[in-house]
Design a binder for these strands. Sequence first.
DNA 1: AAATATCACTTGCAATTAACAAGTATAGTA
DNA 2: TACTATACTTGTTAATTGCAAGTGATATTT
Lengths: 146, 146
Amino acid sequence: MARKETINWNGCPIRYAASVFADRWNFVILRDVLFKGRRYYGDFLAAGEGISTNILADRLSKFEASGILTRHQDRKKRSRIYYLPTQKALELIPIFLSIIDWAERHDEHTEVPEQFITAYRQDADKTIAETEQLIALANAQVTNIH
Amino acid sequence: MARKETINWNGCPIRYAASVFADRWNFVILRDVLFKGRRYYGDFLAAGEGISTNILADRLSKFEASGILTRHQDRKKRSRIYYLPTQKALELIPIFLSIIDWAERHDEHTEVPEQFITAYRQDADKTIAETEQLIALANAQVTNIH
DNA sequence: AAATATCACTTGCAATTAACAAGTATAGTA
DNA sequence: TACTATACTTGTTAATTGCAAGTGATATTT
């Protein structure tokens, strides 16, 4: 996003969403948070398949600013930082699931577990709930164990 | 997207989707196509609230390349060009509707007609179908009248 | 027929952002 | 005390974006 600070956003939901997460790396980070249980800076780096450290730092702080992630310090090991998804982030799950559904239909290279996609198409709400469970688990691992 | 042509996309649906439409201006163009009936280059320019001509041209040709839009010449007035959404584009509707739903819940500035959002929340499939109707109408206006 | 206008782009250049490599700060470990 | 780990910064180069102007192919007006 170059220049043009004072755009007329005009109450458009799509433009708002665009400003929050319409970016290649944002998609990947959100995928990692919502579906892969990643919570640490280092995890995102390793998993992001190529994101640079400065870009990752930039995106994480922007997600914090927009209320998608919260930043926390590990109590016992204070040098470790973890990021947790907010409710606002959890509510992105339906969007990302329908993206997965779409990609599976239109990209021949996409490989989603048959079971997962079938389950989603039969009962989307259930898959949404299950994904939330997954997230709760990942959160617990980070907040309790350490 | 600078450099890094040879990424390991790895069959990930989110990365595929990111490569096709995760970009500020892509969001706006798709909004215009899916919900506002815009079909002409000039319409996109006027409505995009600030997109540059070169960026618009770039995005339109990429959408063509990725099978989201098809480019057509008006028969009677051959200098006019219109773009039509493909089936692949139509199937983005559920994604964009859930984005609208999400933004309405989390952005105080977002102004979506109450009626629309309520209808969507009560019966998503119906709103999806209605949006498809809207698109059919916009297509007809472009392909028949001229 | 010539001049003007419309439309859909290109092109050139400056400004902004991203990628890559390296470095720094703080905390914990040997 | 030295070494390591983790989470970032910083600097530099490369790529993309924004903006203004230009171009070419129709149409329209005079």
